[in-house]
Nucleic acid binder design. Structure first.
Lengths: 192, 192
DNA sequence: TTGTCCATGTAAACAGTTACATGATTGA
DNA sequence: TCAATCATGTAACTGTTTACATGGACAA
């Protein structure tokens, strides 16, 4: 049920279309949540039906162009209530670990798999660092809007929360890199 | 599609029932994958239909007691093939992070949320450490069976793979603890 | 006799992915 | 005119959770 809050959170900084959300899930927001357009459009309709967002037609010239959604007061209240609610932790589902512990029949087959792990998290770290840097530089419209919407103290808080999120995810990626390097080193010692 | 491999992996050390699997997903295996019995029983039936496991009735006295499943050669082959396949990384879905970045309207509400994070990962770390210690001591039948089934070198590999999995997850938990502590410290400085 | 554990299932609902489907606009 | 991007939807399927359902064994 987090999808609706990801959407409300996005719209809390300003109006947007389903398509905007879709692109956002492929970039910035996508670090924390993601969804396909096939899930987004119906969910936006449900949010509108529930009165958490308003929908109005945008026209290009004379004809209908797209739907623009904006959050309502009710939606804002619901978002804040959810944000304050106690966290729920999903059950562990890590197919990587599964592969690892069931590879003892053929451990050397783990090599490409560990190398992929390394590559994946190195790329992830780079992209996270880039996103975070450009955000600090003020390149992200939505976050800038969020920052400029409030007081100076509030701006600091907004930025600090992003910092916690991004540096936290960067640290996670670094942990995976260190882990994979250690595992590869052990594999090397096995081969010798 | 990892459920079937979690099941095959479990059965690769010896026969078991659906109920055994269900308990296992609540303990040892549960660190890496989990499922409810409502998902396990139908999946076992599908595995049997596909010839990856054999099913035979176990009788208590004269009457049917339970179904015992054991992996077939075909099942073993399928498991190994899957274990060697390149990893796939699921899209990020972290409702914690979502709550964090959308809490700038009321950052002090984050406190219980960060404390829950801390508690959750401290408990997780303890339980992981305990499980790993008792496994090293040879308390886990399945893992011992797995170790005793092969050569001495193979035994070392089995243990080392578990070590990589458990210490990796312990390190992840520790990262979350460190992160939450830093976040709480910042929150404290905000309150002052 | 009451509660806990063992044991196995099905049904309904929810969440998410993949595939199908359409059409306008814009720039090379 | 061709490809990419903008824009919105539905349908079928897969995976997971929650709830419903049953019954034997055993110990307090």
């Amino acid at each position: 049920m987090s999808l609706r809050y990801a959407i409300l959170g996005y719209l809390s900084t300003g109006p947007g279309t389903g398509y905007d959300l879709s692109r956002q899930f492929d970039s910035g927001l996508g670090w924390f949540w993601s969804a396909r357009h096939s899930q987004i459009y119906p969910e936006l309709k449900r949010l509108a039906d529930a009165g958490l967002v308003d929908r109005h037609d945008a026209v290009a010239g004379e004809v209908f162009d797209k739907y623009v959604y904006s959050i309502t007061e009710k939606g804002r209240a619901e978002l804040q209530q959810w944000a304050a609610a106690p966290p729920t932790y999903p059950p562990n589902r890590d197919s990587e670990r599964l592969r690892l512990i069931f590879s003892d029949d053929d451990p050397l087959a783990l090599r490409p798999h560990l190398e992929a792990h390394l590559k994946h998290f190195r790329e992830r770290r780079e992209r996270l660092q880039q996103t975070w840097s450009s955000m600090q530089a003020g390149d992200h419209d939505r976050v800038r809007a969020r920052i400029e919407a409030g007081s100076r103290e509030r701006a600091e808080i907004t930025l600090k929360l992003r910092e916690l999120a991004y540096t936290g995810d960067i640290a996670r990626a670094e942990l995976e890199i260190t882990w994979a390097l250690a595992a590869l080193e052990w594999l090397d010692s096995l081969g010798r």
